[in-house]
């Protein structure tokens, strides 16, 4: 069953790309504030006709949520297949959707309906390091940048449209507007106010309390 769905997804993707290719498929490069390619950036476009979308899946591979960031329209059911050998206990305490998929393997877990817009942060009660984000949105078109910072919008009619963006670093904050812009310009690059991944990593070592007194601390005992 899964195999077929995947296969159909691939077909859909191919047809949409074909449409995009013949019609209006555009690539946008997203960078952080230091000019580095930024992945996991969600671009949302409002005012356009909704694009075709595949059934959304939040897989778990190698104890990671794949994809890390998933955007789904409101009222979408999402499958949580488990590709790992180990069990996962996926949960979310986020307001748009609180749920819990206790210790499941394979495709045991039932799909979850996300009927409220907003950000749903996913965790695994067994593997604390697993974090995933499902952005439930009402925007008709959206795309997520890959690791190279590339965002592909397939079916984009000409004209200026209201564009907003979101990144996990924004947490539960709503997507931020970029204003109206023509995304059909080739070679469009978006520089977003997102801290470099390295500094984020560094800050992660410190607890919030430490961060609070960090500036004042001049001497740290070993």
């Amino acid at each position: 069953m899964q195999y077929h769905r995947s296969l159909s997804s691939v077909c859909l993707l191919l047809s949409s790309m074909l449409i995009a290719g013949s019609a209006h498929a555009f690539e946008i490069l997203v960078e952080d504030e230091q000019g580095a390619a930024l992945g996991n950036v969600v671009l949302l476009v409002d005012g356009v006709p909704p694009a075709m979308s595949q059934p959304p899946v939040m897989d778990q591979i190698d104890m990671r949520f794949v994809p890390e960031v998933l955007v789904v329209p409101v009222g979408t059911e999402v499958d949580f297949p488990n590709s790992d050998e180990v069990r996962h206990h996926v949960y979310s305490f986020s307001d748009p959707k609180k749920f819990e998929l206790r210790l499941f393997k394979g495709s045991d877990a039932p799909p979850v309906l996300f009927d409220q817009p907003g950000l749903v942060v996913l965790g695994c009660n067994i593997h604390d390091q697993m974090v995933g984000y499902i952005l439930v949105t009402g925007s008709p078109q959206f795309a997520v940048s890959n690791a190279q910072g590339k965002v592909v919008l397939n079916d984009m009619p000409a004209g200026r449209w209201l564009v907003s963006w979101w990144h996990p670093s924004l947490g539960e904050q709503p997507p931020r507007s970029l204003g109206e812009m023509d995304l059909r310009r080739s070679g469009l690059e978006l520089a977003l106010p997102v801290k470099a991944a390295a500094s984020v990593e560094e800050e992660k070592k410190l607890s919030p309390l430490q961060l609070r007194f960090r500036k004042a601390t001049s001497h740290v005992a070993h």
Partner: peptide, 8 residues
């Protein structure tokens, strides 16, 4: 101290 993560 310890952070409470869910999972962030």
């Amino acid at each position: 101290e310890a952070e409470v993560k869910a999972p962030v």
